[in-house]
Amino acid sequence: MRLKFLTMLMVAACALNATAARADELDDILKRKKVLIAVQTDLPPYDTLDANNQPVGYDIDVAKRIASDLGVELELVIVSGANRIPTLVSGKVDMVVATLSPTPQRAAVIGLSSPYLAYSQYVIAPSAKSVKTLDDLKDLRVGVTRGTLQDDQITRRAPKGTQIMRFEDDSSTAQALLSGQIDASAWGKSINDEIIKKNPSSNLENKFALNSLYGSIGLRRGEPDLMRWINTWIFVHKQDGWLSDTHKKWVGEDLPSLPAF
């Protein structure tokens, strides 16, 4: 039994050797002159791919600005909604900028910055379907992306009898909605607007607001200097209007007011 335990510890130690040696992430980033930032590419207008397959969007601009303000090179690592936290925890990136909403459960696993983003999640469904409240989701097939906040919201708040179907990434969930494999889903309103605009023949519309959400930048736990730097960064660019301008550029609306914590 003890031998088994030791073997497991050794396996764990080997797998996480890379992170074990780190003393201070901020120093490491400055020393290696490169910051690794995880972003998604499947949530336009916050993050998507342009015609040349390059990541673009609000999150990408935030990542670029963080790198340039740090004075280091940027390496973007593409993740999905489901694996963005594991990617961070396993030490593959320094931070996650991917519309990550703060929750108590997430805060127990990773460090979350003050909000750099705010939005409302809306339920989206074909106009032919009468969906006005959560109760109307009963007997409908509602698609969510596994492990995201829509998953949490729908799983906790949808009435009994709602058929919840979980997909691995947001583009699959959107594809399922467009191909009629699911009846409804939910994202931030501007993400829904983008889906509706790009697929006019699908007759989708925003139904009702599910909740208001904020987005945090995710770091590994136990990195107070880097956390301090990120919160300072957010404070500064809230004040100088850069975050709001960038938000307007991509989302077309003013950035809602961002509280700090």
Binding site: A15, A82, V89, S90, V109, R146, G147
Partner: peptide, 11 residues
């Protein structure tokens, strides 16, 4: 994957 996303105990 569902358990992993709820517990973050991926390994």
């Amino acid at each position: 994957n569902t358990i992993q996303s709820a517990t973050y105990r991926a390994f």
